[in-house]
Every structure is written in structure tokens, then in C-alpha cells.
């Protein structure tokens, strides 16, 4: 896994009053990889992700997407640039259908005067394309007009993942995608994340769940005290050593060279 660098950040700083959330952190994401971001509470993990997804504007530092500098001021900016985010609290509209949720904010209109003058939605096309997107990720739901609230938690998260995979051109950011799910459902979503990667998208996975991280990640970005303290190779580092680096009990230099990635 050493694809081209898709997204890069250097020296990101974010301060809230006298609290420094990001203290000059770096970040690097390569094409077709799953990069896990781990860190203790307050390590600057979520601030980093917010900066990458446009939810916060860093005070200093630079973000490059495909080598070009980008300045996201809202999550919408990031979405337009091809970065989709899946939020942990299942950001879907429960009473609305799967197809409506998939195309929420990006509705397709009919061709011709029906669409231009009467603004009529192309529901059949949205339903057909939704089915295609869900099938591509092997999410076993057949009725696209079914309300999302009638789905299980895992299936709902599946809809959210399918939505981001369908529209992301570069990067899918997943913020604790399994936090709200049971064991079996988590397994389903993990498979899903792998399939998203296999379709060529770069995935950033934020998780507290070390077994999930080690199962999925190609590389592990360790955040600590607002900086990136290490990038680890999960195949050559133990879970306990990764946690030690994360908590500051061990320095990344103390690890064997092939543990770093």
C-alpha cells in the first residue's frame, strides 16, 4: 500500500482561547488505503478530522488535496471537493426513504421542462441509482422506498456509508462508524468499509476500537497532544505498543523500524 498521496496536511494549528486543540499536526493519506486515526480523548483527533472535513477552519497550516491547497470553510466545501464524511450519530432523516436519504441535498431532477420549469424530481432514477449504489456495497436491502427508521442500526449505517461512497471522489471520512452498533452489525460495517477502499477510495477511519483498527487499517496515524506522534504499520506493531505510543508511555522511536509506516 504505497499509493500516491491524496490528501496532506502540514502544521495545522487550532486554538480555542488558551486551549490548543491542534499544535502543528501533520497528516498524510494515500490513495486506496484505510488510514486509522487513533488518539486519547483531547489528543486532537476530532479537531483534525473536523479540519479535514471542513467542520472547522484551522488557524494555521495547509491542507493539500491532490497536491493543490484547499481552504474548506464549511462541510459543504469539503463535499464539493470530493470528501464525504460518515458521522457516528447516524446522520440520516429517519422518516424519509432510503433513496431520499441517499440523494438528500443532491436531488436529481427530471429532464426538460418538467425538471427546469416545474422542478420535478426524478424519483425513478434516484430509486434505481440508490439500488445500484447499495448493491455495489452488497448491502442487502431491496426496497429503496422503505423508510430508514424501519432498518436496523447496521443497515442505517450502511445507507450512510453507501451515500458517502456514492458521491466521494477522493476521500471518505468515517467518524466512529461502529460506535453505535452491536458486534454483528459492526462486522457488517467493517466489511463495508473494506469494500469502499477496494473501490479505490481513500478511507480515514476514526475509532476507539483497537481490534477494529487493527483489523482494517493499512496504516495507523497516532495523535497525541495536538500533534502526530507516529504513523504505525499494524502488521508489525502490537496493539499494546500502539496504545503505549498513544498514551505517551512509549515513544515511536523506541519501536522497531518496521513498526513505523
Amino acid at each position: 500500500m504505497s499509493g500516491a498521496v491524496v490528501m496532506q496536511a502540514t502544521g495545522l494549528v487550532k486554538r480555542y482561547g488558551h486551549v490548543t486543540a491542534l499544535d502543528g499536526t501533520d497528516f498524510e493519506l494515500r490513495a486506496g488505503e484505510i488510514l486509522a486515526v487513533i488518539g486519547d480523548n483531547g489528543a486532537g483527533k476530532s479537531s483534525l478530522i473536523k479540519a479535514l472535513s471542513g467542520a472547522l477552519v484551522p488557524d494555521e497550516g495547509e491542507i493539500l488535496l491532490d497536491g493543490r491547497p484547499v481552504h474548506f470553510r464549511t462541510p459543504i466545501d469539503a463535499r464539493r471537493a470530493g470528501i464525504e464524511t460518515v458521522y457516528q450519530d447516524l446522520a440520516v432523516a429517519p422518516a424519509m426513504s432510503i433513496a431520499e436519504n441517499l440523494f438528500l441535498g443532491r436531488e436529481l431532477r427530471r429532464a426538460g421542462a418538467l425538471g427546469h420549469v416545474f422542478r420535478m424530481l426524478d424519483k425513478p432514477r434516484m430509486i434505481a441509482e440508490s439500488r445500484m449504489h447499495l448493491q455495489a456495497l452488497q448491502i442487502g436491502v431491496t426496497s429503496m422506498t422503505q423508510a430508514v427508521e424501519s432498518l436496523s442500526g447496521g443497515q442505517r449505517q450502511g445507507v450512510a456509508v453507501a451515500r458517502s461512497a456514492a458521491f466521494a471522489q477522493h476521500v471518505v471520512i468515517m467518524d466512529e462508524p461502529t460506535a453505535a452498533l452491536g458486534v454483528k452489525e459492526s462486522g457488517m460495517v467493517l466489511d463495508l468499509i473494506r469494500r469502499v477502499r477496494d473501490r479505490g477510495l481513500a478511507v480515514v477511519l476514526i475509532s476507539h476500537n483497537m481490534p477494529h483498527v487493527f483489523e482494517l487499517a493499512d496504516r495507523i496515524h497516532v495523535a497525541r497532544l495536538g500533534r502526530r506522534v507516529a504513523v504505525l504499520n499494524p502488521k508489525h506493531v502490537s496493539m499494546s505498543n500502539a496504545v503505549a505510543v498513544m498514551t505517551g508511555a512509549m515513544r515511536s522511536e523506541d519501536l522497531s523500524p518496521d513498526a513505523r509506516a
Binding site: P94, A95, M96
Partner: peptide, 21 residues
């Protein structure tokens, strides 16, 4: 129309609607 669906989305889950752009 999309405007109508957005109205439902706002009532259904304001935050999801906002994050959907």
C-alpha cells in the same frame, strides 16, 4: 420537488439536513 423534500428533512433531523448541505 427538492424544496419539499428539504422541508421534510429539516423537520425530521435538522442536523442531518445541515450536514447534507
Amino acid at each position: 420537488t427538492a424544496a419539499g423534500r428539504h422541508l421534510y428533512a429539516v423537520g425530521n433531523n435538522l442536523e442531518a439536513a445541515r450536514l447534507s448541505g
